[in-house]
Simulated assay, not measured.
Amino acid sequence: MKDGKQKEKLLSEEQSVNLFAILKKRFDQNMHRHKAMHWLKIQHKLEASPDKVWSLHEMEQTGGEPDVVLHDHITDHYIFMDCSIESPSGRRSFCYDREALNSRKTNKPENSVLDMISYMGVELLTEHDYYELQAIGSIDMKTSSWLFTPENIRKKGGALFGDKRYGRVFIYHNGAESYCAARSFRALLRI
């Protein structure tokens, strides 16, 4: 079963070539997000990590428009984040986690954010990550995105989300079991 899961989380050569073309084009068109970074270095790291390429493909397929936004010089990780202007359209209407999903008696959403994050092999943006992404370019001006929620808030039934209105970033809370058509989540992937 483990081998089967690994096989299904690999892209075909054609899918990889197509994804790399999309990522390189986005990289070239948005140099303000990654000054002093070079695509070939990033591509070599991607080629050495097919599981990460699969995760990037999932980010792309669900509307995240992933792009490189940071380079951690200490760990030598390149950090991709969802850079779509509005929250990724293929990940909307999810409650926060499995506990929240199970607590709903009626009108259950299709999935939860944390289950989807686990399946995709990515991380959920923290408040800090969200502010960093907003500093690169305005996002979520009509939508909102779930954010990683500290345990002390989650234990009380809440979860965090953010958006940008009136030219500033807002971080709010809501019941973790809530969901809406204009709220998704943004992912982060370290390569």
Rank of each mutant, 00 (worst) to 15 (best):
residue 147 L to I: 06
residue 59 M to P: 01
residue 86 E to V: 02
residue 135 A to H: 08
residue 112 S to C: 11
residue 60 E to V: 12
residue 32 H to K: 15
residue 16 S to N: 09
residue 129 D to Y: 04
residue 72 D to E: 07
residue 138 S to I: 13
residue 127 E to M: 07
residue 116 M to S: 08
residue 149 T to N: 11
residue 12 S to K: 10
residue 6 Q to V: 06
residue 151 E to Y: 09
residue 189 L to I: 12
residue 156 K to I: 11
residue 73 H to G: 05
residue 131 Y to T: 13
residue 13 E to C: 04
residue 144 S to I: 13
residue 72 D to V: 09
residue 164 K to M: 15
residue 169 V to P: 05
residue 113 V to K: 04
residue 95 C to T: 09
residue 179 Y to R: 00
residue 137 G to P: 00
residue 140 D to A: 04
residue 42 I to E: 01
residue 118 S to E: 13
residue 149 T to I: 13
residue 179 Y to L: 05
residue 63 G to Y: 01
residue 38 H to K: 05
residue 96 Y to M: 04
residue 148 F to T: 05
residue 131 Y to A: 09
residue 189 L to Q: 03
residue 180 C to N: 11
residue 97 D to N: 14
residue 107 N to R: 13
residue 128 H to F: 06
residue 121 G to T: 05
residue 33 R to C: 03
residue 117 I to S: 01
residue 66 P to E: 00
residue 107 N to V: 06
residue 93 S to G: 07
residue 120 M to Q: 04
residue 182 A to Q: 07
residue 14 E to W: 05
residue 1 M to H: 12
residue 172 Y to T: 02
residue 123 E to T: 01
residue 15 Q to L: 07
residue 160 L to F: 11
residue 61 Q to G: 07
residue 104 R to Q: 12
residue 119 Y to K: 12
residue 80 F to C: 03
residue 13 E to Y: 14
residue 128 H to C: 02
residue 99 E to N: 13
residue 51 D to F: 02
residue 150 P to H: 09
residue 33 R to Y: 15
residue 67 D to T: 12
residue 81 M to P: 01
residue 132 E to H: 06
residue 107 N to H: 15
residue 31 M to K: 08
residue 62 T to Q: 05
residue 40 L to R: 03
residue 32 H to Y: 14
residue 149 T to L: 14
residue 83 C to M: 15
residue 177 E to Y: 13
residue 77 H to S: 11
residue 116 M to A: 08
residue 51 D to R: 00
residue 93 S to P: 08
residue 146 W to Q: 02
residue 131 Y to C: 07
residue 37 M to T: 14
residue 174 N to G: 15
residue 45 K to E: 07
residue 47 E to T: 08
residue 30 N to L: 15
residue 122 V to L: 00
residue 142 K to A: 14
residue 94 F to D: 03
residue 19 L to G: 04
residue 183 R to C: 01
residue 57 H to C: 00
residue 175 G to T: 07
residue 16 S to P: 01
residue 70 L to I: 12
residue 45 K to T: 06
residue 83 C to T: 15
residue 81 M to W: 10
residue 151 E to I: 15
residue 18 N to L: 15
residue 30 N to I: 11
residue 29 Q to W: 01
residue 99 E to K: 13
residue 44 H to E: 14
residue 172 Y to P: 00
residue 189 L to E: 04
